[in-house]
């Protein structure tokens, strides 16, 4: 669609009134973009077909800036929820989509986001089946907030359950960490590094599906370490399952540029958000095969085993440091505050 054709420059309160302007916005942008039989039902909701057990996940996306290196908020909103559904051991099928737009958002920006959502959801193989758009007064939002809810069919071979984790299980990370958080931060804070750091936002549903196809219940737990980073995700697993987790610092996949950026800012990459990385806890018997398979997929080129489940230090994550000695990895608590006296 040619953005120029849309007759308003900016989204205004009238677009959220529920009247003619709303209709125009929906017809002119949303339905036109997502054109599919479910949405075309134009009911208050959609009636869909789904087989067996259903995995459902919802997430709201509030990111600033809304356009960043490597993606925009629309791409995050699709990938984030698709990934969450995939982490349940399911194949994502449908998404709901709700916008809260702040009055004054450029129509072109809105259109670009909607189009990104379309492209991304096609890539993920999911359909947008229902949605909502609200407009709030200036200052009551931050350009645009998006909520998506994803529905997926649980993979027949999947048996994802933290109860099944046991000593010796391996912890696999699918790729370079801390990319998304550093991309957002460097853009927001106006920080310039040697080369631009790009968000890693991507959909992980197909690589997960192929892992489940091949290894079934040998895949015991899947998590995407978004907010709070790898440290918080692993800590949650350790605490929730009362297992010990031992990881090795020099195995953590970290891109040189991101490492340097973290170093200069005094940030620990373990706490920086990811949007295209997952952690798998797997039976140790299949470690090599899992990694081999992952490396064949563009989403898992840098997959690596970073550690294992232990009987020691139950409930805690401990990291073997690169220079000797071990340190405790705690979940992120509030903001980062210096501790050295």
């Amino acid at each position: 669609m040619d953005k120029k054709q849309y007759k308003f420059d900016k989204i205004n309160l009238g677009h959220g009134s529920g009247g003619i302007m709303t209709r125009e916005l929906l017809d002119g942008i949303i339905f036109k973009t997502f054109d599919n039989p479910y949405l075309n039902q134009k009911h208050d909701g959609s009636i869909v077909k789904i087989k067996g057990e259903v995995a459902i996940s919802t997430d709201s996306f509030v990111v600033s800036p809304i356009f960043f290196k490597g993606g925009n908020i629309g791409e995050l909103a699709v990938n984030g929820t698709v990934n969450d559904v995939a982490m349940c051991g399911a194949i994502p099928k449908y998404l709901s989509l709700a916008f809260i737009v702040e009055e004054g958002l450029g129509a072109n920006e809105f259109i670009e986001i909607v189009e990104t959502i379309k492209v991304t959801s096609d890539k993920c193989g999911v359909k947008i089946i229902t949605g909502d758009t609200k407009v709030v007064e200036r200052g009551k939002g931050d350009k645009i907030f998006i909520n998506t809810t994803g529905f997926g069919e649980v993979h027949p071979k999947a048996e994802i359950s933290s109860d099944r984790i046991k000593e010796g299980d391996k912890i696999i990370v699918s790729g370079y960490i801390a990319q998304h958080g550093m991309a957002i931060m460097s853009q927001r804070e106006g920080l310039e590094f040697e080369s631009t750091i790009e968000s890693d936002t991507t959909n992980l549903n197909f690589i997960i599906e192929s892992l489940l196809n091949n290894f079934g219940n040998k895949i015991k737990l899947l998590r995407d370490p978004t907010r709070g980073g790898l440290a918080s995700t692993l800590s949650e697993i350790a605490t929730d399952t009362n297992n010990g987790i031992l990881i090795h610092e020099n195995k953590i996949p970290l891109e040189r540029q991101v490492a340097a950026a973290c170093e200069i800012l005094g940030l620990d990459p373990l706490y920086v958000a990811n949007e295209g990385v997952f952690v798998a806890i797997i039976d140790k018997d299949v470690e090599t095969e899992v990694i081999d398979l992952m490396k064949k997929d563009s989403k898992g080129l840098n997959a690596i085993c970073i550690g294992q489940i232990t009987n020691d230090h139950r409930g805690k994550v401990v990291m073997q440091s690169g220079i000797g000695g071990k340190r405790i990895v705690t979940p992120l608590i509030g903001e980062h505050l210096p501790r050295i006296c």
Binding site: L265, G266, P338, I340
Partner: peptide, 10 residues
């Protein structure tokens, strides 16, 4: 200003 987390102490 406190800058750059624990790095400032180092």
């Amino acid at each position: 200003d406190w800058l750059a987390g624990d790095k400032m102490a180092k």
